[in-house]
C-alpha cells in the first residue's frame, strides 16, 4: 500500500511540471466522459451519435433532421441539461471547497462549513411543506443558505476582524440551529412531504431541465472565473492573516470577496440539486495531490475533477438499479474510501 502510494506520487510528478497540459487533458476527459455518460442509460446511445445530436443543436447551419426524434428528445431535452447541471454543480462545489480550504488554512474544511447546507435544507423543507408559499423551493433554499452564512459571518465578526476560530464556531452554531429547525419541519410534515424532504436532503439531479441550467450557468461560470483570478491571492491568504497583510494582500477584504462568492456558488448548487456531500471536501485534495498546492492550478483542476466526479456518480446513480439512487449516497460511498486512502498515504507526504 505504502509503496504503491509512492509510485503513484512519482508518476503524478510529471503533471506537477506540465500543468497546462494536465489541465487541457483533464478538460478533454470531462468532455469525453460527458458524451459517454449521456449515451448511457435506459436507452443506450453511442457516444458519436450523442456528439452529433448536440452538434446539430448548437451549430446554426445543420438541423440534424436525419437523427431520430427520439434521440433528440433523450439527448437534448433530458440528458444534456442533466449532464450540464452535474458538471456545473461539480465546478461550484469543488472550486468553492478549494477556496474555503485556502481561506481557512485548513485542508479539512468544506463549503458547507458556514451553514450553507443546513440553511438551504431548512428553506427547501419550508418550501416543500408549504407549497402555496410565494417563493419556490429552490428560491427558499437559496435565500436561507445565504441567510445562514450571513448570520455566521456577522456573529464571527469582532472589532473589524473575522478570526477563523470564531467563523468556524459560528458556522457550527448556525448549522445546528437550522438542522434543529429542519427537524421541526420534518416532525410536523405529512408523510408525502416528509418523503420529499428526505429525498431533497440526499441530493440528486432527477428534475434537471434547461431552466435549471440557465439559472445556474451564469453563477457557475462568472463565479468560477472570479475565483480563479484570485488564485495567487489565495496562496497568500493560506499563509495566515498577518503574513498576508505583510505581503500586501488585505486579508479581510479578500476573504470577504472569496467567501461570499463561494457561498453564492454553493448556495446556487445546493438549492437546485440538494445537498451533495464529499465533493467540496475531497476533490480539492485530489487536485492538490495531482498538481501541487498552487491555487492558480488547484482551482481549475478542482473544478474539472469535481465535474468529472459528479458526472460519473450521477451516471452510476441513475443506471445502477431500476429506480434512481440519490446521488449523495454514491458520492459518499465512493468518496469515503478515497479519503481513507489519502489519510493513509499522506503520512509520508502529500
Amino acid at each position: 500500500m505504502k509503496l504503491n502510494g509512492k509510485a503513484l506520487l512519482l508518476k503524478l510528478d510529471f503533471l506537477k511540471q506540465n500543468k497546462t497540459a494536465g489541465l487541457t487533458g483533464l478538460a478533454l476527459l470531462v468532455a469525453g466522459t460527458a458524451c459517454f455518460c449521456m449515451g448511457t442509460g435506459a436507452k443506450y446511445i453511442p457516444a458519436a451519435m450523442v456528439g452529433k445530436t448536440i452538434f446539430s443543436h448548437i451549430s446554426g447551419f445543420w438541423d440534424g433532421s436525419d437523427i431520430s426524434p427520439l434521440y433528440h428528445t433523450i439527448i437534448w431535452k433530458i440528458r444534456t441539461p442533466r449532464a450540464l447541471l452535474a458538471i456545473m454543480t461539480g465546478v461550484c462545489l469543488a472550486s468553492s471547497g478549494a477556496v474555503f480550504q485556502g481561506c481557512f488554512k485548513n485542508p479539512l474544511v468544506e463549503p458547507y462549513i458556514l451553514g450553507t447546507s443546513s440553511g438551504a435544507a431548512f428553506g427547501a423543507a419550508l418550501g416543500i411543506m408549504f407549497p402555496s408559499f410565494f417563493m419556490s423551493v429552490q428560491m427558499l433554499a437559496f435565500a436561507f443558505a445565504f441567510l445562514a452564512v450571513g448570520l455566521a459571518y456577522t456573529m464571527a465578526r469582532t472589532r473589524g476582524e473575522t478570526p477563523l476560530v470564531n467563523l468556524i464556531l459560528s458556522g457550527i452554531i448556525t448549522g445546528s440551529i437550522f438542522t434543529a429547525l429542519v427537524g421541526i419541519v420534518k416532525y410536523l410534515a405529512r408523510d408525502e412531504a416528509l418523503r420529499e424532504i428526505v429525498f431533497w436532503l440526499m441530493g440528486g439531479f432527477y428534475y434537471a431541465g434547461w431552466t435549471d441550467v440557465s439559472l445556474m450557468l451564469p453563477v457557475a461560470l462568472v463565479g468560477f472565473l472570479i475565483l480563479w483570478s484570485h488564485g495567487w491571492k489565495l496562496n497568500i491568504l493560506s499563509m495566515g492573516d498577518k503574513e498576508a497583510r505583510a505581503l500586501g494582500i488585505d486579508p479581510e477584504k479578500n476573504k470577504f470577496i472569496l467567501i461570499s462568492l463561494s457561498t453564492l456558488m454553493t448556495a446556487a448548487a445546493v438549492s437546485s440539486v440538494g445537498i451533495i456531500p464529499w465533493v467540496g471536501l475531497m476533490i480539492p485534495h485530489a487536485a492538490r495531490l495531482i498538481f501541487g498546492p498552487d491555487h492558480r492550478v488547484v482551482l481549475p483542476a478542482s473544478a474539472l475533477l469535481g465535474a468529472l466526479y459528479l458526472l460519473i456518480c450521477d451516471t452510476i446513480a441513475r443506471t445502477l438499479t431500476q429506480t434512481e439512487i440519490p446521488v449523495g449516497i454514491i458520492t459518499s460511498l465512493i468518496g469515503a474510501p478515497y479519503l481513507f486512502f489519502l489519510v493513509r498515504t499522506r503520512g509520508q507526504r502529500m
Binding site: K105, R245, A246, L247, G248, I249, D250, P293
Partner: peptide, 23 residues
C-alpha cells in the same frame, strides 16, 4: 495602504505553519 506598506517592510514571523505543501 497595505500594499504600499508591504513595499517598504517585510515581515518574518516567529513560526510559520503551512497547511499546504508549497515548494
Amino acid at each position: 495602504t497595505i500594499r504600499e506598506t508591504a513595499q517598504h517592510v517585510a515581515y518574518v514571523p516567529q513560526h510559520h505553519t503551512q497547511p499546504f505543501p508549497f515548494q
